[in-house]
């Protein structure tokens, strides 16, 4: 196997997911600044001492410097080290949210397709979580940017029925895969189950601004969730299921 020209040294990236492979190795999913998402083999990453130092930094949610060699779909990871930033841990409460980000990236990005802006957004979102920012706002911001940057293009500034600009004082319904549609005065209620969204809020969302009051934030959450579910094409997000189970336990023990 020729490996000439297929060596990458010290590329900034994150570990998204890992699963055991054979006796002592791992299959890792990485998200890198320059090469996008990729799958690699970390040979001997479990167990033996030598590999332990080579892959010492291989933990999720920490900025890493990754090196790999090999062409094709799954190269071999030759090194994973901490990028020198202090090893600040995510608070346990934020971990489920961070895993949710990882699952979105795994399911919605295409391998070997660089997304430098999405990478920066991911890094910034993890920093927000680490700094103890509001989980809700950080996640919605990430979802919004993800949809925009991956070209799933959720058009919130134009009415999908007639292409007219969204008006600040009008109210709209959102349908995944189509867009927003103005609530006509003659069709009062019951056109759709989706909540009514003020035009002002939609216009702010297109500029990346999230509303602050909890009720509007819930409406945004429902909107983004419907849009993401549409992109996922029926695939279930496992982190959501687990998050619900964990919330049940936390609720019961609170």
């Amino acid at each position: 196997m020729s490996r000439v020209g297929a060596r990458v040294e010290l590329c900034c990236g994150y570990l998204l997911h890992q699963r055991p492979w054979r006796d002592t190795s791992l299959i890792v999913e990485l998200f890198t600044a320059e090469h996008g998402r990729l799958t690699a083999f970390a040979r001997g990453a479990r167990g033996t001492r030598g590999a332990w130092t080579r892959y010492s930094g291989l933990q999720p949610f920490r900025p890493l410097l990754l090196s790999w060699t090999g062409r094709g779909e799954a190269p071999t990871l030759t090194g994973a080290e901490n990028d020198g930033s202090p090893p600040a841990q995510l608070a346990p409460e934020a971990l489920l949210s961070a895993w949710y980000l990882n699952e979105l990236l795994l399911k919605l990005t295409v391998a070997h397709d660089p997304h430098p802006e999405l990478y920066l957004q991911y890094r910034a979102t993890l920093e927000q979580l680490r700094a103890g920012a509001s989980l809700e706002a950080a996640l919605r911001q990430f979802e919004l940017r993800l949809l925009e940057l991956l070209g799933f293009g959720v058009e919130l500034s134009r009415d999908c029925a007639d292409g007219s600009t969204v008006l600040e004082d009008a109210y709209y319904h959102f349908t995944a895969g189509e867009g927003v549609r103005r609530q006509r005065p003659e069709q009062h209620e019951g056109v759709s189950d989706s909540p009514l969204l003020p035009g002002r809020m939609l216009l702010q969302l297109t500029e990346g601004q999230l509303p602050e009051d909890p009720q509007s934030l819930r409406a945004v959450r429902a909107l983004l969730r419907a849009a993401l579910d549409h992109c996922l094409e029926g695939r279930e997000l496992k982190t959501r299921v687990v998050a619900r189970a964990v919330a049940r336990i936390r609720g019961a023990s609170a």
Partner: peptide, 15 residues
């Protein structure tokens, strides 16, 4: 252990 991406939550761990 808890591994949300693999769908392993508290119930699978015998909570």
């Amino acid at each position: 252990h808890l591994s949300p991406l693999d769908g392993i939550g508290p119930e699978q761990l015998g909570a």
